[in-house]
């Protein structure tokens, strides 16, 4: 229950970021889906803790410095129960 509420708040924050912050930063996505899409899907799919962990891992890779774990390209949220999940 509380975790659902927290996820709701987080999704709201992501919407806020998409709307108010992201346009100020210009085009800067290295990944597809974008980090905000990725976080949204992983919270919906995997819940607060696992979804949070996936989101954090993705954001930590979202930079151009390869030796510090920077990466790019197509990177889908890991699926649950082998069920394929579309990009939303």
């Amino acid at each position: 229950m509380i975790s659902n509420f927290l996820i709701f708040i987080i999704l709201l924050l992501i919407k806020f970021y998409n709307f108010f912050v992201s346009p100020l930063l210009g085009v800067r996505c290295r990944f597809l889906p974008t980090c905000s899409d990725y976080c949204r899907i992983s919270f919906k799919e995997h819940g607060l803790i696992k979804g949070g962990a996936y989101s954090l891992k993705r954001i930590m890779r979202c930079h151009p410095i390869k030796i510090l774990g920077g990466s790019d390209g197509i990177d889908l949220v890991p699926v649950k129960n082998y069920k394929s999940k579309e990009l939303d």
């Binding site: 290295r30 151009p64 790019d72």
Partner: peptide
């Protein structure tokens, strides 16, 4: 739009480049 993004990503991959700096530097 989705197909386009995917195609662009594939191109970046093939050419080993990515012009974007990502969100971590900002966050």
């Amino acid at each position: 739009k989705t197909k386009l993004q995917q195609a662009i990503m594939a191109l970046y991959k093939k050419e080993q480049i990515n012009p974007a700096s990502g969100c971590l530097p900002v966050l």
